[in-house]
Design a protein around this nucleic acid. Structure first.
Lengths: 144, 144
DNA sequence: ATTAAGATGCATTATTAAAGCATGTACTTA
DNA sequence: TAAGTACATGCTTTAATAATGCATCTTAAT
C-alpha cells in the first residue's frame, strides 16, 4: 500500500515545472539532475504526463515540456489516479476467490478508494506550492 | 496500490470464522481447503491474527481458532491496518527526495490515508456477512 | 546535414510479496 | 506418559512487478 516511484516522479516533475517562470520549458535531463533520479524511468513518466494532458511536450532541438494548465487547475486526484493506474484495491480474481459473488469486501474497499480520491480532489498542484520560495531555493542551489 | 494477498487471506479467514456456529474451532487446513490457498502463507496470517487479538488460537490436538469477539466488534480498519502494515503511502526517503523538507505531498497523502481508514471504521466483520446464507452454502458445498 | 530533444520498445535488475520447507512447542487423549 | 495433532517460528526459495538500462526512432531547430 504505497504509491509507485513512477507516480512520485510524476508529481515531483509537476512541482518542478510549477516553480519555473511561465512559458519556460524544462527538459528530462534537467529534472533528472534536480532530483537525482534515473533518466530512463523519468522518460516514461514524462511521456505519460504528456499523453494525459498534464504537460505539453515539444520534441526536437530546444524542445522540452511545460505545464498544460495553471497549477490550481491540476488536481492531485487526477494526476495520481492516472499515473498510479486505476485498478481495484483488492484483487478478487487471480487467484479466483470462491466467495467472490457473495463478498461485500470489494464494494467497501471500492467506496474507501473513492473517499480517498474525493479527498485528494480538494487539492491541486497549487496546494503543493505552499513553500514555493523554499522549493525554488532548493532547485537553484542544486544547479551549482 | 492494492492490499496484499496476506491481508486478503486474513479477511477471508475472519469471514469464514464468522459463518461458523459460536464456539466451534476452525483449523488452518480447513481454511486452506475452503479457499484453495497455500497453507504456508495462511499459517503466518493466522498467527498474526492471533497475536493482534482478532482470533483466539489453541494449539495441540483438537486445537484451532475462533473469533475473539462478536463480528460487529471487529472493525475493518483495525484488521486491514494491522495486516497491511501502517507505513506512509509515499516514501520520501530511500532514495532521499531533495525537496522533502519543503514538500506538502506527504501531509496530503497522510490525510488521505486517514480519510480512507476513517471510512473503513464504519464497517465491521458483521458488514461482510450481509450474504451470510450464500456464504455458508458456498463453504458447505466445498466440503463435499 | 547536424544536433538536441522527446518517443518507443525490449532487456535486465532490484525489490518485495508469496510460497515452500523444516522443525519447535503446546495440548489432548488413549 | 507416549503419540498424535495443531499452531508457532525461522529460514529459504520462487514469483510478480516495479524500476532501471539500453538501443533506436522520430521530430524539430539551426
Amino acid at each position: 500500500m504505497q504509491i509507485k516511484k513512477y507516480t512520485d516522479y510524476g508529481l515531483r516533475t509537476l512541482i518542478y515545472l510549477a516553480t519555473l517562470p511561465k512559458g519556460r520549458l524544462a527538459t528530462i535531463n534537467e529534472i533528472c539532475a534536480a532530483y537525482e533520479i534515473p533518466r530512463n524511468h523519468l522518460n516514461k513518466v514524462i511521456h505519460q504526463l504528456g499523453k494525459e494532458g498534464f504537460i505539453i511536450t515539444r520534441r526536437g532541438k530546444n524542445g522540452g515540456f511545460q505545464l498544460a494548465a495553471e497549477p490550481a487547475e491540476i488536481r492531485l486526484d487526477h494526476v495520481i489516479r492516472r499515473l498510479e493506474g486505476d485498478t481495484p484495491w483488492v484483487n478478487c480474481h487471480s487467484p479466483v476467490c470462491v466467495i467472490e459473488p457473495a463478498c461485500e469486501l470489494k464494494h467497501i474497499l471500492a467506496a474507501g478508494k473513492r473517499v480517498f480520491y474525493d479527498y485528494l480532489a480538494s487539492y491541486t498542484l497549487h496546494s503543493l506550492l505552499h513553500n514555493r520560495n523554499e522549493l525554488e531555493q532548493i532547485f537553484s542551489t542544486r544547479e551549482l
